[in-house]
Simulated assay, not measured.
Amino acid sequence: MDYQDMNNRSDIDLLPIGTVVKLRNVKKLVMIYGKDQIQRRTQEKYHYVSVPFPEGNITEDYNLFFNHNMIERIVYRGLEM
Rank of each mutant, 00 (worst) to 15 (best):
I12N: 07
P54G: 10
V51C: 08
G18N: 05
K28E: 13
I38K: 05
T59H: 13
Y33D: 06
I38V: 15
K45H: 14
P52D: 11
T19M: 06
V30F: 06
Q43R: 13
T19E: 03
N7P: 00
T42E: 10
V20E: 02
Q4D: 00
T19S: 09
E80N: 04
R40N: 09
Y3K: 07
V21E: 04
Y48S: 10
Q4G: 00
Y33F: 12
L15M: 05
D61P: 00
I74K: 04
P54S: 10
M1P: 00
T59D: 15
E60T: 09
I74H: 04
R41P: 00
Y3T: 13
L79H: 06
R24E: 11
G78N: 06
E72N: 08
R40C: 07
Y48R: 06
V75P: 00
Q37Y: 00
Y46L: 12
E44A: 15
M6R: 15
Y62R: 01
Y48C: 14
K35S: 04
S10I: 15
N69H: 06
Q37A: 01
N57S: 02
M31Y: 00
D5G: 05
N67K: 05
V26N: 04
R77D: 01
K45L: 13
M6L: 15
V30N: 08
L79Y: 11
H68Y: 13
G56C: 09
K35W: 01
N67M: 07
Q37L: 02
D13W: 02
L14I: 10
G56E: 08
Q4S: 02
K45F: 11
E80R: 01
D2C: 13
S50G: 01
K45D: 09
Q37K: 03
F66C: 02
N25T: 10
Y76E: 04
I58C: 14
D11I: 12
D2S: 14
F53H: 09
Y76K: 03
E44L: 15
G78F: 05
H68Q: 12
I71L: 02
D11R: 08
L29Q: 10
Y3H: 06
L14Q: 01
F53N: 04
V49A: 13
I12T: 08
V26D: 02
L29S: 03
T42F: 13
S50A: 12
G34I: 01
V49Y: 04
Q39Y: 14
V20H: 03
I17M: 05
D13K: 09
Q4N: 03
I71W: 04
D5I: 14
R24T: 09
F65E: 07
K27I: 10
I12Q: 07
